[in-house]
Amino acid sequence: MQSKIEGTTLPVLSIRIDPGERLFAETGELSWKTPNVCLRTTTSGAGNSGFLGAISRALAGGGLFMTEFFAENGPGMVSFAAKIPGQIVEHTVDNSTSYMVHRHGYMASTDGVRLDLGFQRKLGAGIFGGDGFRLQRISGYGQFWTMLGGEIIPVDLGPGEQLDVHPGHVGMFEERVNFDITMLPGIRNKIFGGDGFFMARLTGPGRVWLQTLTMPNLAHALAPYMGVETATEAAEVSGVAGAASLIGRMFE
């Protein structure tokens, strides 16, 4: 199985599938494919089988169903386009380590890769971690691809080395990295600082992939424009409805 990542701000992942190979992705991720690539919707993809496995995957931010791709009568190609500005990265997992990925980070994987819910080891991280708490745990063996927002900043933490990060900017990290929540110091910082009350404290050893763009920040940046457009459309609809009502009363 060979992959190619094209594009910059909104990249596209294209994967060549040979006969006998299987690729799994979340439902609704397909952008285009060759005609000989077949699809099968299943609950047992990404290393999970049965109802409980699908529930675990859904709690991690995925779906109850997965799409399985396979090629017939020769090699085929399937492509997945990014849904937000960011970067697609290929990773290899080999049973020696596992990864924690934010709940919308998983994109696709080969057969042998397992995707399920990643539990936090400390209660504070679970209660106050926000989006950082609902993590997808990726293990097994094979290749998998992640989609992180904005630019990706990899950081290698040494043993005992720590980094405080806004939970939403934690895109992915090796499972051996300790993830905990720490409170910002000072009442003034908490109330007026605009950065929230809590930060994710990551403690090495291990690698962390930080993402510069988060979904809440993107939504916040677009909100003023969405609000104006929505209000305009509502006014137009209201005007049309009012005119129609007035005309209706004229002919009563």
Rank of each mutant, 00 (worst) to 15 (best):
Met107His: 04
Phe51Gln: 06
Gly239Arg: 15
Glu151Asp: 14
Val177Met: 07
Pro75Cys: 06
Gly194Pro: 06
Trp32Tyr: 12
Arg22Gln: 12
Gly20Ala: 09
Glu233Phe: 10
Gly242Asn: 14
Val228Glu: 07
Thr110Arg: 08
Pro205Gly: 01
Ser49Arg: 13
Ser96Gln: 13
Phe192Leu: 13
Ile187Thr: 14
Pro11Trp: 12
Tyr99His: 10
Ala71Arg: 07
Ile153Arg: 12
Phe198Asn: 03
Glu6Val: 14
Ile84Gly: 02
Pro11Met: 11
His220Cys: 05
Gly28Val: 09
Ala54Cys: 01
Met147Cys: 09
Glu90Lys: 13
Ala221Met: 06
Leu23Gly: 08
Ala125Pro: 00
Gly74Val: 01
Gly74Asp: 01
Leu64Tyr: 10
Met172Asn: 02
Ser139Ile: 00
Arg57Glu: 00
Leu202Ser: 05
Thr92Asp: 04
Asp195Cys: 04
Phe192Ala: 03
Leu213Ser: 07
Glu229Pro: 00
Glu174Arg: 11
Thr41Asp: 08
Pro11Val: 12
Met183Ile: 14
Val240Phe: 08
Thr230Trp: 11
Asp131Trp: 00
Pro224Trp: 02
Gly86Glu: 04
Asp195Val: 04
Gly186Pro: 02
Leu184Arg: 15
Asn189Trp: 00
Met215Ile: 15
Arg22Met: 09
Gly160Trp: 03
Pro159Val: 07
Ser96Gly: 05
Met66His: 06
Phe179Thr: 00
Leu115Pro: 07
Lys33Ile: 14
Glu229Trp: 13
Gly196Cys: 08
Ser56Tyr: 03
Val37Ala: 10
Tyr106Gly: 04
Pro216Asn: 12
Ile191Val: 15
Gln136Pro: 05
Val237Gln: 08
